[in-house]
């Protein structure tokens, strides 16, 4: 079995780990690390009978994920203190962790992602800069590009804690053909007891689908689809179709649900997905070898090109690549 499919099967059916041989365990852990799902996997299989060596890996992964969770929640609290009365909504991993959702169990959390109303974004930036965050990208072209075309501020990093924050004002680049409704996400957000807020489950699902299929090159796709699987399992899909339609993400959402079924069930595993499109996505999502290394270079390249194609119109893409190319090939 392809090791990425092995990871998918083990996440879906943890008891199946009981039959793994040493080589399969090794591949499973390597792919889980590469997909940044080792903590999720560890939480799923902890307590099951397994070889002693595997138990050590699981124990360390859980300790690490718990520390990551503490650090992420602290970072959210730091942002809350810095932003004061500017309303904001936690996104992605930190939102799952703060709300104690199934999707957050063991999940690796990198940057802090938050959503702020567009007319407050400059004020948010000023306050974050005053509280010790700094710009990461000193390059004027990148900076301008972010401010003009992206759905977020240029990434900021805190100079003492060394943690990044991505301040979004919507969930897709402004250059993308789809324009979701960030105002609706802010308005429908759910409050937590500590004053933080996260998007409604349907909006979190729409964000996951947008990120997967309308933005990036599917890097981290297995993890994103696991988020979708957990959110659907926990909250169901009532009103999801209408909400996805509202954000212009109906097609993306349907594809996400189909691929979740293909990867993580409950439908049969491989081969259950619809047409050649889904098969191509699955080919890209599971492109790893038993060492966790990326495979299927051509498929990956195709999705990389597609991600740029989705992100900007052709003339702009040419200009962008030309600027990047010149920068990469000019001395100094």
């Amino acid at each position: 079995m392809n090791p990425a499919w092995l990871l998918a099967r083990t996440l879906r059916d943890p008891a199946s780990a009981g039959k793994l041989g040493p080589g399969e365990w090794t591949a499973l852990f390597a792919v889980a690390r590469a997909e940044q799902m080792i903590g999720t996997l560890a939480m799923r299989i902890q307590g099951l009978p397994m070889p002693e060596d595997a138990r050590r890996v699981v124990r360390d992964a859980i300790a690490s994920a718990e520390q990551g969770r503490t650090a992420a929640l602290w970072e959210a609290e730091m942002a809350r203190r810095a932003l004061g009365d500017i309303p904001f909504v936690l996104l992605k991993g930190t939102a799952f962790a703060a709300a104690g959702l199934e999707a957050g169990r063991g999940r690796s959390i990198g940057d802090l992602d938050i959503l702020v109303a567009r007319d407050l974004i400059e004020e948010a930036e000023t306050r974050l800069l005053a509280a010790g965050w700094e710009w990461v990208k000193p390059d004027p072209y990148d900076d301008q590009y972010y401010r003009r075309w992206m759905h977020e501020l240029p990434p900021l990093i805190h100079r003492e804690r060394d943690r990044m924050i991505d301040v979004h004002h919507t969930i897709l680049p402004l250059t993308a053909r789809i324009t979701p409704d960030p105002r609706a996400i802010l308005d429908a957000a759910w409050p937590l007891a500590n004053g933080l807020r996260h998007p409604s489950p349907n909006d979190m699902l729409c964000h996951a689908a947008a990120h997967l299929f309308a933005d990036g090159d599917l890097a981290g796709g297995m993890r994103n689809l696991w988020d979708v699987r957990c959110l659907v399992e926990q909250f169901g899909t009532e009103g999801l179709e209408a909400r996805a339609e509202h954000h212009g993400l109906a097609g993306e959402m349907t594809r996400a649900i189909r691929l979740v079924q293909a990867l993580y069930g409950p439908e049969p595993l491989a081969g259950s997905a619809g047409g050649w499109g889904d098969r191509l996505y699955l080919r890209r999502l599971t492109a790893r070898d038993g060492w966790g290394r990326p495979t299927r270079k051509l498929t990956r390249l195709a999705f990389y090109i597609r991600s740029h194609w989705l992100r900007m119109p052709p003339a702009m893409l040419v200009r962008h690549l030309w600027t990047k190319w010149r920068k990469a090939h000019s001395p100094g």
């Binding site: 040493p22 365990w25 090794t26 852990f29 390597a30 070889p51 002693e52 060596d53 595997a54 050590r56 890996v57 360390d60 060492w291 966790g292 290394r293």
Partner: peptide, 10 residues
């Protein structure tokens, strides 16, 4: 030799 290694190097 470990049964299942903690880390991979290539």
């Amino acid at each position: 030799r470990p049964v299942i290694p903690d880390f991979n190097v290539h």
